[in-house]
Design a protein around this nucleic acid. Structure first.
Length: 582
RNA sequence: GGCCCCGUCGUCUAGCCAGGUCCAGGACACCAGGUUUUCAUCCUGGUAACGCGGGUUCGAAUCCCGCCGGGGUCACCA
């Protein structure tokens, strides 16, 4: 059958940010199209009037673009990458748009008419309440409710009645078993008794998902449908619809689902749950107590203050109840809590790299089945590799748990071993401009210093968001440094203040270092250690404590260079002045 | 509960379709040593799995059956 070009599509509903599971679906659809030299279509399924929003749709486009997933047909979108290059995706080169289902209603109407005229679909007049009652009755009788056309149904009369009475349209199922030929799962047969006369047009006139999907896929020439296994049970309905409409049936590939490491669904609610748990454990019961934990002037204050104590308590008590996205973020900030990442945007904010995310996602349910020369499995690869190797025959059947540890290891490995200091500096700055403006401001103030910061942070960075902590001492004022007591005792006071003596001796040496750069500083310190016949640890740790307040920091040369000569001297003076006291 | 899908280390998986080379390989995590001025890296080694029970076969992780377990789905949501 296959001289037709491959066309795949990703069809999210714009009800929120792009979920990480959706991102994998998009990635696989994209990769399949690229692998086979076909086209990748992006379509927005906004037939749910109440839940869809234009903002969400735009957010999803942005998330996809950030991941490096570009589409051939779909909403137009211009992306700007870190280097300032722009790339445009989408458009309607084949004339198969529009790509928002809400703008395709007259298209659907033609097919509704066709089906009703042919007697393959029919109006039904039960109210939601009546249907609920029917379902309940079926349940009481221990049967699964399956909607069927009544035996005495009068099609002509019903068609007449539909002009005046509220109704839905249902597809008349053909009464025979339907087999799905799935390229991942093989043949799956659904018995006729299980297939109901499902709704294809809602009372509000909008098509249901089932209907819009089938019509749009046909009209957009979609040849291969890759989607999550949760859709498997829908597939016979789609096939029945295709047959009724005289459409081709695309090739289906249902892929395994992704869960949290504890086996629960990865849901936006996880963030709310985590926040709730943290507030409970902190024993906080008033909004004020939360607000007090935020830094003065923190952006999140407003979001929290809009929550009354009563709301807060209700929320704490009720598992079902959720706070808004911003409120949850504010709670997390107040308690220093790290929320689980669920949406692509969350991973971006946490400082994961798009390439790493794609790599990791690709491995959830697919693997290239190749070995490296040393016998290890190929599992680190880029999108280009994916696009050249991906196929449905290596998609697994078993659900996967999302292992954040492994993702983190991939991210850290890429940052530490796959990027130059310069690349990292740029990436980190781009991230900071979006998620940490205080840091980006600091970066902009001194480019040379930023280069050193990047060099210092990169080898210890796992995610862009944790890099700041590594060089946090450099953003503090000299007076704001607080000395960790344990470190001070261990490295400065022990042995009758041997560490303090080293600091004293170092002052004139540090004053003479020229230029004040990491290499020169390191050389001077090494020279001093050798001269005094001291192990480097005996020299380095006292300085580290004096300058950063703790026994942990990047290499000393970089550490001192970041603080600057003046800062270094001032901090050492402060530390000496503190002496053995507090 | 009905229907449907799935079942290899804690996790992601290779191997299964074309049974022997698998007392099952890799990665992440974990544990133990080592390198290093702290941290982070890095190096070496280690623990750890074919859900259970029947078949078929000279031989089964691989084929068949049953059981058990997990998941999905049962909307005028997508």
């Amino acid at each position: 059958m296959n001289d037709r070009p491959v066309i795949t599509r990703f069809a999210p509903s714009p009800t929120g940010h792009l979920h990480i599971g959706g991102a994998r679906t998009a990635l696989f659809c994209w990769a399949y199209a690229r692998r086979h030299g076909g086209r990748f279509v992006l379509r927005i399924e906004d037939t749910d009037q109440a839940r869809s929003s234009e903002d969400a749709a735009r957010g999803i486009l942005e998330d996809l673009a950030w991941l490096g997933i570009d589409w051939d047909d779909g909403p137009e979108f211009t992306a700007r990458d870190e280097d300032g290059h722009t790339a445009s995706f989408g458009g309607d080169a084949r004339g198969v748009g529009p790509f928002y289902q809400s703008r395709r209603r007259e298209i659907y109407e033609r097919y509704f008419e066709q089906l009703v005229e042919a007697g393959l679909a029919y109006p039904a007049f039960e109210s939601p309440e009546e249907l609920a009652a029917m379902r309940k009755a079926a349940e009481a009788a221990k049967r699964t409710f399956v909607y069927r056309q009544r035996g005495d149904y009068d099609h002509a009369a019903a068609v007449e009645q539909m002009k005046s009475a509220p109704h839905v349209l249902r597809l008349k199922m053909p009464g025979q078993a339907i087999t799905v030929h799935d390229s991942v799962l093989g043949d799956v047969t659904f018995p006729a008794e299980e297939l109901d006369d499902f709704v294809i047009r809602k009372a509000d006139g909008f098509p249901t998902y089932h209907f819009a999907v089938v019509v749009d896929d046909e009209l957009m020439g979609v040849t291969h449908v890759l989607r999550g296994q949760e859709h498997l049970n829908n597939t016979p309905r789609h096939i029945a619809l295709q047959r009724a409409l005289g459409f081709a049936t695309p090739v289906y590939a249902h892929m395994p689902l992704i869960f949290n490491i504890d086996g629960t669904k990865m849901s936006k609610r996880d963030k709310d749950k985590a926040a709730k748990k943290a507030v409970r454990e902190a024993g906080i019961s008033s909004t004020r107590a939360l607000v007090e934990r935020l830094q003065a002037g923190a952006r999140e204050r407003g979001a929290l203050e809009s929550v009354s104590d009563n709301d807060l308590q209700e929320w704490l008590k009720d598992k079902q109840r959720q706070l808004g996205r911003e409120q949850v973020g504010a709670v997390a900030r107040a308690l220093g809590l790290k929320l689980p990442e669920i949406d692509v945007e969350d991973f971006r904010a946490a400082g994961y790299l798009p390439d790493v995310l794609c790599n990791f996602l690709a491995l959830l349910g697919w693997n290239p089945g190749e070995k490296n020369a040393d016998g290890t499995d190929v599992e680190r690869f880029d999108r280009k590799y994916l696009a050249s190797r991906f196929d449905t025959d290596r998609i697994g059947k078993t659900n996967a748990k999302f292992d954040r540890d492994k993702l983190l290891a991939f991210n850290a490995d890429t940052i530490q071993h796959g990027l130059s200091d310069e690349q990292f500096a740029e990436l980190w700055l781009g991230w900071a401009e979006r998620f940490d403006t205080e840091l980006s401001g600091w970066a902009r103030a001194d480019a040379a210093r930023w280069a050193i910061a990047a060099r210092a942070a990169r080898p210890r960075t796992k995610t862009l968001s944790d890099a700041r902590e590594t060089i946090g001492f450099a953003l503090l004022s000299d007076e704001a440094i607080t000395f960790d007591e344990r470190a001070r005792k261990k490295f400065l006071l022990r042995g009758e203040g041997a560490g303090l003596a080293v600091l004293q001796a170092l002052v004139p040496i540090l004053e003479k270092i020229d230029p004040w750069k990491p290499e020169a500083i390191d050389a001077a310190l090494h020279g001093f250690a050798e001269e005094q016949q001291l192990g480097m640890g005996k020299v380095a740790q006292p300085v580290r404590v004096a300058v950063t307040g703790t026994g942990v920091s990047p290499g000393l040369g970089e550490t001192l260079a970041l603080v600057g000569r003046d800062g270094t001297m001032r901090r050492i003076e402060r530390c000496i002045a503190l002496g053995a006291g507090n």
